[in-house]
């Protein structure tokens, strides 16, 4: 059984059909890249996995570890191990990053029936991870994402992922808005989290990120479906030829 199975998924937003019969499986421990032109439904897929309100699922199913997650609230999915690194991380003024991380982790643990994380254990994890990601102690005290640059926000997403230790991490255009140095730091943070127990979906428009986060498999999305699947070399082919062929084909 695959860890994630998406079966013939149809999704509408405000009566507009975005996903039109998407089928995709991700194995346990697999890193799957999803590439595709703008408007192909990549970000919609990311949001639907995380359970964002406002997306109508008209057909199909999403199974996580064999269990449908369609009826689950975002927080229940998070407790089951789903994590979305946002393309545009949201600012939460007045809430220190540290508080946010701890509240999130304890909320998940509570849902899973586990006790709260101990203070020293938590502090150690946050300190170590933020050091790798070049996040200063001062930033941890500031409001979540408030006044942070694009690159800083993306690092914060990876920090959250490291603290929450998801079983399925969905990275939505984590490379957008990053310069090459920031990209390396973020990719390094992601690579540290690769594990046989953790599946990842790396959504990107460009091949560049995949030089640093090398995927096990590459899926191409166009017009709301997966239209081609291949190995990591597929990304290079797309970089060379562009998406024109897929845009035409699916029409």
């Amino acid at each position: 059984m695959s860890f994630l199975e998406i079966k013939n998924l149809h999704v509408e937003v405000e009566d507009k059909k975005i996903l039109k019969g998407l089928t995709l499986t991700v194995e346990k421990g697999q890193v799957a890249a999803i590439m595709g032109p703008n408007g192909s439904g990549k970000s919609t897929l990311a949001y639907v996995l995380a359970g964002k309100p406002g997306y109508q699922i008209t057909e199909g199913d999403i199974l996580l570890n064999g269990e449908s997650i369609l009826e689950m609230a975002p927080d229940e999915r998070a407790a089951k191990g789903v994590f979305l690194a946002f393309q545009y991380p949201v600012e939460v003024p007045g809430v220190a990053t540290m508080t946010f991380l701890r509240t999130s982790l304890n909320a998940q643990r509570k849902t899973r029936g586990e006790g709260e994380v101990s203070t020293p254990e938590f502090m150690k994890l946050v300190r170590e991870t933020s050091a790798h990601l070049g996040i200063s102690a001062d930033m941890l005290k500031r409001g979540v994402n408030v006044g942070f640059s694009g690159g800083e926000k993306k690092r914060q997403e990876i920090l959250q992922m490291a603290v929450l230790q998801p079983r399925l991490a969905v990275l939505d255009e984590t490379d957008s808005g990053l310069d090459i140095d920031a990209l390396k730091v973020v990719a390094d943070g992601v690579n540290r989290l690769r594990s046989p127990e953790r599946s990842m979906i790396v959504i990107t428009h460009y091949q560049r990120l995949l030089n640093y986060i090398v995927p096990d498999v590459v899926h191409v999305m166009a017009k709301g479906k997966v239209v081609r699947t291949g190995g990591k070399e597929l990304a290079l082919e797309l970089e060379a030829k562009g998406y024109a062929e897929y845009v035409g084909e699916a029409a």
Partner: peptide, 27 residues
């Protein structure tokens, strides 16, 4: 809703998320 969804996607219930956002607001 963006803010609530962001917090919920990290594992907080809707009420926990609201309380957190409000506590940030009144800090």
């Amino acid at each position: 809703e963006e803010m609530l969804f962001y917090c919920q996607s990290r594992g907080m219930s809707a009420e926990e998320a609201t309380a957190l956002v409000v506590n940030g607001f009144v800090r």
